[in-house]
Nucleic acid binder design. Structure first.
Lengths: 182, 182
DNA sequence: CTATAATATTATATGGTTAGAATATTAGAC
DNA sequence: GTCTAATATTCTAACCATATAATATTATAG
C-alpha cells in the first residue's frame, strides 16, 4: 500500500476545480484513476475534509437535492486557493530525495544468495516491462484524445523514468554475474 | 520529511548482521548515513523493536557490560531471518508504482500560470543538479574505497534516474513554452 | 567531589490515518 | 408494501509513528 505524501493537498486540489461533497470526492478519486496512486479510503476523505475546514481552506454547507439524502458540500476558500498554489509551487520546485521499496531491497540484498538476487531482479524487469506497456498505451491514448500536455505528462514522465530504471537493473544483473562468476 | 516505507524491515535488516541494542541501532543508523533516507528517531526504534519482538522476529535479553548502564540486546530469530529474506525477495521482485511529491505537483500544475510553472521547473532542475553532483561524488568515493557493487548501487541508481528526470523536465519546459507561445 | 556529558531505556501524550460499524434517505424491483 | 441497492455521513476504536520527559548508570573534566 503506497501512500500519497500529502492527502490534504490531494483533496484540496480536487476542490480547486469545483465544490464537492465527501461521497462525490470518493467517486471522483475512484473514477479519475487516482486510486492508482493512493489507497485513500472514504473514512480518510471525511477526516481530511474536517482538517481542511478547521484550517479554513474549505467551507461547507448542507445541500438538499430531491431524491437524494442531503449532503455536505465543500467549497474551497480564497485562503485555500492561495495555499494550494503555494503547495504546487513547492512541489514543482524541489527535487526531494525519495527512497523506494526497491532501494530498501538493494540495501539488504547481500543477505540473499547472488542467484536468488538475479532471479528477483529478472522478475523485477518483467514486472516493470508490464508497466511500460501500460504507460506507453496510456500516453498514446491521451495524445489521440487530444489531452493537454500536462495530462500526458502524468504518464510520459513515469515512462521515461521506468525505462532508465530497467536499463539500470539489466546492467546491474550483468555486474552481479561478473562479480560472482555466474 | 520523507519516510522509509517499512520501518520494521529497515530495523530487522540491521539486526540480520549482528545483535544490537536500541541505542546502538540509533548510532548505527546515524553513522551508516541511513538518516539520509529516513528520519527515524530513537523513540521509533524502540517502538519498532517492541513490535518485532511481539511478532517473534527478534528476541531480547539484558546484558551488563562493566562501565556501562545495562542494556537490552535484540537478536534476530530464525523466523526473523526467514521473514527478512522474504521481504527482500518481495522488495527486489516487483516494480511498485510510486508517486512522488513532484507527481502531485504535476497533477495540479494547471492551477498555476504557465510562466509560474516554468519558474518552478527551472528551480527544480537546479535543485536536482545539486543532488547529481552529490551522487556523482558519492559513487566515485565508494568506488575508490573499494566498496562492494551493491553499496555503489545505492548511489548509482538514483544518479541514473535523476539524470533522466532532469532531461524529462527540460523537455517539458520546452513543451510548455511551445504550447503557450512563451 | 561534583557537574556534566555520554550511555541506555521506559513512559506518556499527542497526532495522523484507517477500519469498520452505525445511521439515515431514497429509488427501484418484485 | 417490503426488500435491496445506492447514496451519504458520522462515530468509535484501533493502530502507526513521533516528540518529549523521566529515569538511571558511568566516565571524566574541573
Amino acid at each position: 500500500m503506497v501512500r500519497i505524501l500529502d492527502l490534504e493537498a490531494a483533496v484540496l486540489g480536487l476542490l480547486y476545480e469545483e465544490p464537492q461533497y465527501g461521497y462525490q470526492l470518493e467517486k471522483t478519486i475512484e473514477g479519475w484513476g487516482m486510486r492508482n496512486w493512493t489507497q485513500i479510503g472514504f473514512s480518510s476523505i471525511y477526516y481530511v475534509l474536517k482538517k481542511l475546514e478547521k484550517k479554513e481552506l474549505v467551507e461547507s454547507k448542507m445541500e438538499k437535492v430531491k431524491g437524494k439524502p442531503s449532503r455536505k458540500v465543500f467549497t474551497i476558500t480564497e485562503l485555500g486557493r492561495q495555499t494550494m498554489k503555494e503547495k504546487i509551487t513547492d512541489l514543482l520546485s524541489w527535487n526531494k530525495k525519495l527512497i523506494s521499496p526497491f532501494d530498501l531491497g538493494l540495501a539488504y540484498l547481500n543477505y540473499l544468495e547472488p542467484p536468488e538476487v538475479i532471479e528477483c531482479l529478472e522478475n523485477y524487469v518483467e514486472s516493470a516491462n508490464g508497466r511500460i506497456k501500460f504507460l506507453e498505451s496510456s500516453v498514446k491514448m491521451q495524445e489521440e484524445l487530444g489531452a493537454p500536455y500536462y495530462v500526458v505528462a502524468l504518464f510520459s514522465r513515469p515512462l521515461a523514468n521506468l525505462k532508465t530504471e530497467i536499463e539500470w537493473v539489466k546492467e546491474f544483473i550483468e555486474k552481479i554475474k561478473e562479480e560472482e562468476n555466474i
